[in-house]
């Protein structure tokens, strides 16, 4: 199956707020465990045990249109960042409606669906996260 039109989705009724998605994301991209580096961040209310919101790229492409340096581009139906072209102006970060970017060392990073096998979904043992 190709990646056309796919993005990460969350079923909030299954999410337990364990943070494993964020941990595997930051580890696979940066070799470090830090939910704040992660390109998926789930805001979980521990008082009532429910998901409040999720920050994840919807692959809408608005940042592609706004990037002054052409660093954000479509690869098929996935938006990717070319860090060779990026000058760290963070226009994309401010543009994004979904707060989907993480900024590490001044450069923006975003979900690229891990080349077809999103690790956040693979490691979500409850099946709350899925690519579709």
């Amino acid at each position: 199956m190709g990646l056309q039109g796919r993005r990460i989705n969350l079923d909030p009724s299954l999410c337990t707020g364990c943070s494993i998605c964020s941990l595997i994301c930051s580890f696979s991209k940066f070799g470090i465990f830090s939910p704040r580096y992660s390109m998926i961040r789930i805001y979980y209310n521990h008082e009532f045990g429910r998901v409040e919101s999720i920050s994840i790229c919807r692959q809408c492409g608005e940042c592609v249109d706004r990037c002054p340096y052409g660093a954000l581009r479509w690869s098929g139906s996935i938006v990717t960042v070319d860090h060779n072209l990026c000058r760290g102006c963070l226009t994309c970060v401010h543009t994004c409606k979904y707060n989907a970017f993480s900024v590490v060392d001044g450069k923006p990073y975003k979900c690229d669906l891990c080349n077809g096998e999103p690790l956040c979904a693979k490691y979500c043992v409850r099946g709350a996260l899925y690519a579709a």
Binding site: T16, G17, C18, S19, I20, L23, G49, V125
Partner: peptide, 11 residues
């Protein structure tokens, strides 16, 4: 709610 602690798969 079924919740979990940080980085736990037993939940």
């Amino acid at each position: 709610s079924r919740g979990s602690c940080f980085s736990c798969m037993i939940m």
